[in-house]
Amino acid sequence: MKPVVSAFNAWTCIVISVFAIIILSAIGSMFANNHHSMMGSDEDPESGSAVAAAVFGAVGVYGVFLLFCASQAFLHQRQSRQGEIALR
Rank of each mutant, 00 (worst) to 15 (best):
residue 1 M to Y: 01
residue 1 M to Q: 08
residue 2 K to G: 07
residue 5 V to H: 09
residue 5 V to Q: 09
residue 5 V to E: 10
residue 6 S to T: 13
residue 7 A to N: 11
residue 7 A to K: 12
residue 8 F to D: 10
residue 8 F to C: 06
residue 8 F to H: 11
residue 8 F to N: 12
residue 8 F to A: 13
residue 9 N to E: 15
residue 10 A to S: 13
residue 10 A to H: 11
residue 10 A to V: 11
residue 10 A to T: 05
residue 12 T to Q: 04
residue 13 C to W: 03
residue 14 I to C: 05
residue 15 V to K: 09
residue 15 V to D: 08
residue 15 V to P: 00
residue 16 I to P: 00
residue 17 S to T: 04
residue 18 V to T: 00
residue 19 F to E: 08
residue 20 A to P: 00
residue 21 I to E: 03
residue 21 I to Q: 05
residue 21 I to P: 00
residue 22 I to L: 14
residue 22 I to S: 06
residue 23 I to A: 10
residue 24 L to D: 08
residue 24 L to A: 04
residue 24 L to S: 07
residue 26 A to C: 11
residue 26 A to P: 02
residue 27 I to N: 06
residue 28 G to Y: 06
residue 29 S to W: 15
residue 31 F to I: 04
residue 31 F to W: 09
residue 33 N to R: 14
residue 33 N to Y: 12
residue 33 N to L: 15
residue 34 N to P: 02
residue 35 H to T: 03
residue 35 H to P: 01
residue 35 H to W: 04
residue 36 H to T: 05
residue 37 S to L: 15
residue 37 S to V: 12
residue 38 M to Y: 02
residue 38 M to K: 11
residue 39 M to S: 09
residue 40 G to E: 02
residue 41 S to W: 00
residue 42 D to A: 09
residue 42 D to Y: 02
residue 43 E to I: 01
residue 43 E to D: 11
residue 44 D to E: 04
residue 44 D to K: 07
residue 45 P to A: 15
residue 45 P to D: 07
residue 46 E to F: 03
residue 46 E to W: 06
residue 46 E to V: 07
residue 46 E to P: 00
residue 47 S to E: 04
residue 48 G to S: 08
residue 48 G to F: 01
residue 49 S to H: 12
residue 49 S to A: 13
residue 49 S to I: 13
residue 50 A to V: 05
residue 50 A to P: 03
residue 51 V to N: 00
residue 52 A to T: 02
residue 52 A to N: 06
residue 52 A to E: 04
residue 52 A to W: 02
residue 52 A to P: 00
residue 53 A to G: 05
residue 53 A to M: 14
residue 54 A to D: 10
residue 55 V to T: 14
residue 55 V to H: 08
residue 57 G to H: 02
residue 57 G to Y: 01
residue 58 A to K: 06
residue 58 A to W: 06
residue 59 V to G: 05
residue 60 G to I: 05
residue 61 V to I: 14
residue 62 Y to R: 06
residue 62 Y to V: 08
residue 63 G to E: 02
residue 63 G to R: 01
residue 63 G to M: 07
residue 64 V to S: 11
residue 64 V to Q: 09
residue 65 F to H: 11
residue 65 F to Q: 07
residue 65 F to G: 03
residue 65 F to A: 13
residue 66 L to G: 03
residue 66 L to R: 06
residue 66 L to Q: 05
residue 66 L to S: 06
residue 68 F to M: 12
residue 68 F to R: 09
residue 68 F to Q: 15
residue 69 C to I: 02
residue 69 C to W: 03
residue 70 A to L: 14
residue 71 S to T: 11
residue 73 A to Q: 10
residue 74 F to T: 13
residue 74 F to M: 14
residue 75 L to Q: 15
residue 75 L to T: 12
residue 77 Q to I: 14
residue 77 Q to G: 12
residue 78 R to D: 15
residue 79 Q to F: 08
residue 79 Q to N: 13
residue 81 R to Y: 06
residue 81 R to I: 01
residue 82 Q to E: 04
residue 82 Q to H: 02
residue 82 Q to F: 00
residue 83 G to W: 00
residue 84 E to G: 00
residue 84 E to K: 04
residue 84 E to P: 00
residue 85 I to V: 14
residue 87 L to Y: 08
residue 88 R to I: 08
residue 88 R to N: 12
